[in-house]
Amino acid sequence: MVDSIVVAEGLHKRFGTTEALRSLDLRVTEGTVCGVLGPNGAGKTTAVRVLCTLLVPDQGSASIAGRDVVRDADGVRKLIGLAGQHAAVDEKLTGRENLVMFGRLYHLGERRAQARADELLERFDLTDAAGRLVRGYSGGMRRRLDLIASLITAPPVLFLDEPTTGLDPRSRNEIWSSVRELVAGGTTVVLTTQYLDEADRLADDIAVVDHGRVIASDSPERLKAVIGSRLDVVVSTVDDTPAAAAALARLTGNEPTVDGTTVSAAVHERAVSLLTAVREMDAAGVAAVDVALREPSLDEVFLALTGKPAEEEVAA
């Protein structure tokens, strides 16, 4: 087995009566992306904060490249970059001043801190906004600046806590391509997200977190194979739904669900494609308005893994 660069074992963390982490285990192989997937309140941010030395766990241990996050916090800090859910930049400075300041604090020296700031601003398309106060930035610009700030020293391990939540599709794509670039350069990335498609696109492995524990951990392909994709067929009138449901059941071997004029069923076999679906509908004499094969949503993943829908955990 390849050595894990990020290791968490039996992490527990309690805030008052809320158990944010209950025996969370995580292993991330060097040079890969680990997607930590979970609904609101699952404990994703808490886990990241423990791994980044910002929180001390009540129980359990964690290490980065063999350095313990509690006993050798400073050693860990030299290896990590963090882009948090809430942008960790200084609102009362300009974008460039932020980066230069962090560069100085990473002991790059004045000239290199300045040069590195300009280089990163250029690469992430923030040069125009570099001289403006961060207070006036849009959410997407802040996130990008935050991401840049975590890249100043090109750390070997990068933690991204919901890097694209609340971003428009364009900013989201930009962040995705930056992450891919970094991974190509050898960086190990731990990325939390509420979106299965984000984890699917970026991650080599996905850890599904629920109520402070990892309930499933596998490659996206295998996770999806367990859960299955969904085949949705939209028919023109409600009268056609029984025929469509019967055809879908024959095709997929699974019990379809009907919602208005949409009939949908889980698909586990690769043999089922859009083409075979359309043919099957034709053969059954069903006039399908739309046929689509789609990935399961986070809700469906949870349903499949826990037998109940993903619920938001309320803070105690």
Partner: peptide, 11 residues
């Protein structure tokens, strides 16, 4: 402020 988190995660 969020920037304190960054300070604390830096060496």
């Amino acid at each position: 402020k969020g920037v304190m988190d960054r300070y604390r995660s830096m060496p």
